[in-house]
Design a protein around this nucleic acid. Structure first.
Lengths: 137, 137
DNA sequence: CTGTATCCCGGATGATACTG
DNA sequence: CAGTATCATCCGGGATACAG
């Protein structure tokens, strides 16, 4: 996964982790796999919006990283299950941390856009920048 | 940034968080800011390899997200300090989780490539794929 | 059902030069 | 010191069609 060669001073363990769960879907895939084994189409539905191509690709990368295990059942129609590997399982606390914070963040953003403005104000106070809305797209 | 519009089934708090720390450097920048306030060039050195352009850009995005605060001192030569905002500070546990796991991961990969092979074997046992080394670059 | 194979585009990232 | 401006590039990711 696009290995980095620059040395990040005291080492970048954060970078090491982020490199594995980058991509537009890896993190979410892992998140879903935390709930247990899932089949290809099951994941596809869970990640509504992802294309087959990408799902396959991300899954393969996750597999190469040793984070998930791909189990193919020799039968027709095909059946493939994806599960967290031991390594992937050890990632649970990280995923959880990501999820927990994300939930709080989402709640904050949805419930109170004023808070965002407040942040902008705080910034203005420091430098006198112009107050433009945050990615309120 | 790059807001997502698809709905990820039961909601994707993980995605929400990851969106904020995506980019090739955001996570690491945040990581370094966990150690305290830093100036532009200080960060530049810490992230050896990043270009001015990118550092500026990532910093601006982080600022717009409300994760960091940019403080400009009206003096010459210029002096700009970046610090975690309250919001950014709340992200500490996440960054820590990322760092902690990353350290273990790095140790695992460096100390024992055999372990990686083992994972490949485990995978092979399930489907009969070819055993190629992991990004052992 | 679970993938592959192609084609293609836009944005993310880099290199370099210039500036208040 | 801390940026901006510009140009060039790479590749992540989407659309679509086909396959075992």
């Amino acid at each position: 996964m696009t290995p980095k060669n620059y040395d990040c001073a005291a080492g970048c363990p954060v970078e090491a982790t982020l490199d594995l769960i980058d991509g537009k879907w890896k993190g979410v895939i892992l998140y879903h796999l935390c709930d247990g084994t899932m089949r290809f189409n099951q994941l596809r539905k869970a990640l509504a919006g992802i294309t087959q191509r990408m799902l396959t690709k991300q899954l393969r990368e996750l597999e190469e990283c040793g984070l998930i295990v791909r189990k193919v059942y020799a039968q027709v129609p095909p059946k493939v299950e994806y599960t967290l590997s031991a390594e992937g399982d050890s990632l649970r606390p990280v995923i959880t941390a990501l999820a927990t914070w994300g939930q709080a963040r989402l709640a904050r953003v949805n419930a109170d856009n004023a808070a965002v403005s407040a942040a902008a104000v705080e910034r203005d106070a420091a430098e006198g920048a112009d107050p433009y809305a945050l990615h309120a797209a």
